[in-house]
Simulated assay, not measured.
Amino acid sequence: MKKKNLSISFSRRVVQYTFCIILSFIVLIPLYMGFVGGLKSNGQLLTDPVGLPNPPYYNNYIDLLTGSVGTFWRSLFNSILVAAGTVILTLIVCVMAAFALARVQFRGREIIKNYFMLGLLFPLAVAILPLYLQVKNLKLLDNYFGVILPQVAFQIPMTVLLLRGFFLHIPKDLEDACSIDGYGPLGFLINMVIPLSTPIIATSAVIVLVASWNNFFLPLLVFNTEAYYTLPMGVMNFQGQHASDWNLILAYLSLAMLPALILFVTSQKYIVAGLTGGAIKG
């Protein structure tokens, strides 16, 4: 019986590892094609799209990084600015809203919470026409806030849901201790809740940051001037300008992917810690 259980366990591990290896190849092959393709000349890419560059052609990356071709640094700056503004505003609004919905007793709290959750049912594409008219009426076209404010609005429901679930499980004894020390609700939030909630706040920040970084539709709607283009729009614009230079396009794509890859590698532990530390409770 013991040998049979060991055999079943071994078979399960083989299946799991095989699935993970196949999935890894599915993810890594496009990354390999992008980075290696950017190190080739156009002739090398057409004759041998899969093989290693021989010799490596570094001018693609050098031209992009020095600004002699494309506007990579400007698009990167725009993406960082929009993403940072979205994350900061979202966390300020959502931390206070989630704290009120989790720790403050008032009439209609559940109704307001459910109203927040209704936002999960409305993707950006559904509201794109009224959103565009509103942004235009506020004269926010070709303005960073024309992208930041709608992104904040659409990130509020999920972020409040995550934060509220975590705040609910902070012990009441800590709140009583803060009250004895003379702190009110705001003091309890600043001095106790926020320090204890660092994992879920970091998790929420990363989720909002990734959503903002990858957003293409909203910047396309708001930005008409190339100087405001974010990285996804920069890739589209660069591809249109250099349609025949696939080596340059792959190099640009690789550079555009690099910040997101670094972000995932460095923030993975925060995402796991936040989601396993009570983020999905409540």
Rank of each mutant, 00 (worst) to 15 (best):
82 V>S: 00
95 V>I: 15
67 G>N: 01
95 V>E: 10
68 S>I: 09
122 F>I: 13
111 I>H: 12
119 G>E: 07
41 S>R: 12
109 R>T: 05
4 K>D: 15
53 P>M: 03
65 L>F: 00
57 Y>S: 06
70 G>W: 08
58 Y>W: 15
22 I>G: 04
109 R>M: 06
31 L>F: 12
73 W>Q: 03
135 V>I: 15
58 Y>S: 11
41 S>P: 03
25 F>N: 03
28 L>I: 12
68 S>W: 11
92 I>P: 01
104 V>R: 14
40 K>F: 03
107 R>A: 08
131 L>I: 10
89 L>K: 01
115 Y>L: 15
14 V>L: 07
56 P>T: 09
101 L>D: 00
13 R>Q: 13
97 A>G: 08
118 L>H: 06
109 R>W: 09
83 A>D: 01
70 G>T: 00
92 I>C: 04
53 P>S: 09
129 L>P: 00
16 Q>K: 00
61 Y>H: 09
6 L>S: 11
81 L>C: 00
7 S>Q: 14
131 L>Y: 03
111 I>Y: 14
74 R>S: 12
72 F>I: 07
58 Y>F: 14
125 A>L: 12
123 P>H: 07
50 V>Y: 13
37 G>R: 02
48 D>C: 10
35 F>T: 09
23 L>E: 00
91 L>E: 07
118 L>D: 08
51 G>P: 01
22 I>M: 03
85 G>R: 01
70 G>F: 08
126 V>N: 07
131 L>S: 11
81 L>Q: 05
22 I>T: 07
117 M>R: 05
89 L>S: 01
37 G>I: 02
6 L>F: 06
97 A>S: 14
124 L>K: 05
36 V>S: 11
118 L>E: 02
84 A>E: 01
27 V>Q: 08
73 W>A: 06
124 L>A: 04
69 V>L: 11
94 C>T: 14
50 V>A: 11
94 C>K: 11
12 R>Q: 08
86 T>N: 03
110 E>I: 05
17 Y>F: 07
50 V>K: 08
55 P>G: 04
102 A>M: 12
65 L>M: 13
132 Y>S: 05
80 I>S: 08
24 S>A: 13
36 V>P: 00
6 L>Q: 12
90 T>M: 10
32 Y>D: 05
15 V>G: 00
134 Q>S: 13
121 L>C: 10
49 P>Y: 04
75 S>L: 02
18 T>F: 14
79 S>A: 01
89 L>V: 10
104 V>M: 15
19 F>I: 15
114 N>K: 12
65 L>D: 03
74 R>G: 06
127 A>R: 05
22 I>N: 04
96 M>Q: 03
21 I>W: 03
135 V>C: 11
